[in-house]
Write a protein that binds this DNA or RNA. Structure first.
Lengths: 215, 215, 215, 215
DNA sequence: TATGAATGAGCCTTCATTCAT
DNA sequence: CATGAATGAAGGCTCATTCAT
């Protein structure tokens, strides 16, 4: 959460510089959300801010750097929002539920950011044609989730299952929740998150032989 | 499953015509899988077949028709492959497992097709900027799944839950399985499908305590 | 008016050959009238006849030859229709009137031909970029008219004036009549022709000093 | 006759912008005159100025806007040149003569402009295939001329005739004069204009039976 | 004779990028 | 810092023409 991407020994950015960059990133987010990846040209981003195309090239090395900045910033904000919510809970099941809930909250109040992020993840490629955010970025999330699951399995809270498949599926459930509520604005994403919590509770909890439930 | 999109009263397509069209569609699939949506130009598709750009325009009304043909064909093939596998099973849980299994099988042997389809679904937009296959296509799948779930709930095989959320999540689980195994070629997608089957069995089956139901 | 453009020593064209050529020329005329010069492609001409593009190339050396055939044929028909009407009259003034009348008649019953001809005259160019029918074709008409005028001036029927300017203007009056009635289908082209006759009668007749008029 | 087409509240165009636009319009005029409508591509226009194709797209929304600008500008210049010459005269006959003379002058010094305008009028079509400047533009001229004629008829200066036919013919005479002198550069267009003046004087003036008159 | 198939050039447009001012 | 101007490549598409069958 500090001075995003500023190689050491670099001259620090001025205030106005930072303001412009933020302004441009915001415009890029909105443009991506509205027109999709292919429909997002520098011209469109610039027009939305009311500046000339050249300004963007001036502040960013190129379209790619702009987008990378965007991803870093949004990603940072989401983590900052979700992490404390998760940490506060005591069991794996509840932590997972908290994750669903927090992301649903964030997504419902930052729709454009989520859409923009998805567009980029699905489309941005490096010069070799490989997806820029193909796997590495999800890998982080997968490992966090797997760690949780393994811990829960160790304590006996959770049944035995393939943690990687579960992580992939849980993350997919989150992404789908966000995408679905994005194309169906009337959808109750909060309820969706609760349902997911219950779904995965059933899916991962160890069967309680004798005594009843707690939840 | 025959005569894909051939308006009645239309002159039937010649053998060579069909061959070329198929060849071009195949090339489009591969190009999409390899270079992504934005990287798929008529020029690239043509080069891969070793023909000139104009040939594509000759056989298809335009890029749009080519892509729609592609979607129809692939979609048809997948349905044709999956449907009988699913129908053969007797319980909802087993039918869902069969669906996971069949799709995993298909995906593992038709990787490019799955990727191409995803690229198109995520990116193709109509002239108003709306996603061409935004929701309608998934809606079909969702309704099939919901019907299953509701039937299972009616017979008491399944517990009570929000069928829409479950459908969205199940479909997302499938997509994620395919996408994951696509970026991780060593991944055992068959095992993944089995895990999913188990995961959702836990998630949807009515608890078999002793006697009837609760919830 | 014989076997249009068939170089000596050429194999005579078969019946079917001629039929096809006529059919194609007709289609070209209609297409030109309907879509204009730029909108007239071989594909469109072929489609209208219900044949394939290649057929045209087979019967004509190229687009240019097709169009030249078209011009020759239409031109021939017009001459064949107009000439006898003109010849029948005894004075220059009446011959000019007859010309107006005959062309108005022809144009009103062969609208498409007139439009097609205009489109070609205005647009067809040779490989050097020069208008193919820029001047030469009108030159013929001009000389016919000038001859009339000079004869009339010699007999004293007509006043003295620049015959070339008068010829150019008379021809322009005809073309404008046709063009105007083409864009204004309700226009009474017959009346228009009569008005033109009167207009030019006033413009060219020698002033009758003593005795009254005849007309 | 200022600020051609510049929507209110629009940022005014810079000096260099205006210069480029003018330069491009000029090149378009020359290209049209030289190569005709079909032979006029953005590439050719750009090459003539020595710039790249993209520059045109940068300064004009598209080919259509460029052509409309061209028409507006040329049309404006002609009107500005002709109108005062006509207004200065006191009788209809003299005003018509002045019109011939002024247009002949303008055409002889702005040959390319006249040709370009004709090319566009004859060929530019909207997306429905209808001629863009089919009738409306001439309609203006026709009505001006008819008004003159009717006024002259009311005062008794002119004989009785169909004003519409006379207007169409007078305009056609002008266009033909321009076109003819364009393909025959040695032609004396000034003399042509004088001849036309005389021609139409004879054609429209009321017969002077008894009293004075001048001519 | 006729056809369908293919070609290759050209068209207009969009775009990321560069650069002088 | 910011801009407007320009570039050049690439994109989808149309078209006259060629050719094997």
């Amino acid at each position: 959460m500090r001075s995003d991407s500023q190689a050491a020994g670099q001259k620090p950015r001025s205030f106005i510089e930072d303001a412009r960059r933020a302004q441009i990133v915001t415009s890029a987010v909105e443009t991506l959300a509205e027109h999709g990846y292919a429909g997002t040209s520098l011209a469109r981003i610039a027009t939305r801010v009311g500046i000339s195309k050249g300004v963007i090239s001036y502040h960013f090395a190129g379209k790619d750097e702009l987008i990378e900045q965007l991803v870093e910033q949004i990603y940072g904000r989401i983590s900052a929002f979700v992490a404390p919510e998760v940490k506060r809970e005591q069991t794996v099941v509840r932590r997972l539920a908290a994750r669903f809930r927090a992301l649903a909250n964030y997504a419902s109040t930052h729709r454009a950011e989520m859409v923009a992020l998805t567009e980029i993840f699905n489309n941005l490629r490096d010069s070799n044609g490989q997806l820029r955010y193909g796997d590495g970025y999800n890998e982080d999330l997968y490992q966090q989730l797997e760690e949780e699951f393994r811990a829960g399995q160790a304590t006996g809270e959770l049944r035995s299952f393939d943690t990687r498949v579960m992580a992939v599926t849980a993350q997919a459930a989150i992404d789908a929740m966000i995408a679905y509520s994005d194309t169906n604005p009337d959808h109750d994403i909060g309820a969706h998150a609760s349902e997911l919590a219950l779904l995965f509770e059933h899916a991962i909890k160890a069967p309680t032989t004798a005594p009843p439930q707690e939840t």
